[in-house]
């Protein structure tokens, strides 16, 4: 089982699509709303160098943006 975290904001459209994609493929994930949690936002920026969402953390590896190909590979999702 992969440990998956989604860093997102409630209104970011690609975050909505990403979460929908994960749900569709039955991937359990922890959701971190960076608009409500400034500490998590800072931590995410420190770890990734990115000031943009969505960011996905899969077993400690970061994927920036809704990169369907890489996410599918890391989670063994067949498209």
């Amino acid at each position: 089982m992969n440990k998956v975290k989604v860093y997102s904001t409630p209104v970011c459209p690609y975050c909505v699509s990403l979460k929908e994609f994960l749900k569709k493929h039955n991937v359990d994930f922890e959701e971190i709303d960076v608009s409500q949690n400034q500490e998590a936002a800072r931590e995410m920026v420190e770890k990734t160098g990115q000031m943009a969402v969505p960011v996905l953390e899969i077993d400690g590896e970061f994927v920036v943006g809704f990169d369907r190909k890489r996410i599918s590979k890391l989670l063994n999702i067949e498209n």
């Binding site: 970011c12 400034q38 936002a41 160098g49 969402v53 920036v64 943006g65």
Partner: peptide, 16 residues
């Protein structure tokens, strides 16, 4: 993604 953005509703929270 490192300060340049085209989507304010997505990325505004990083500019507290």
């Amino acid at each position: 993604g490192q300060g340049v953005s085209y989507c304010s509703i997505c990325d505004a929270p990083f500019f507290q």
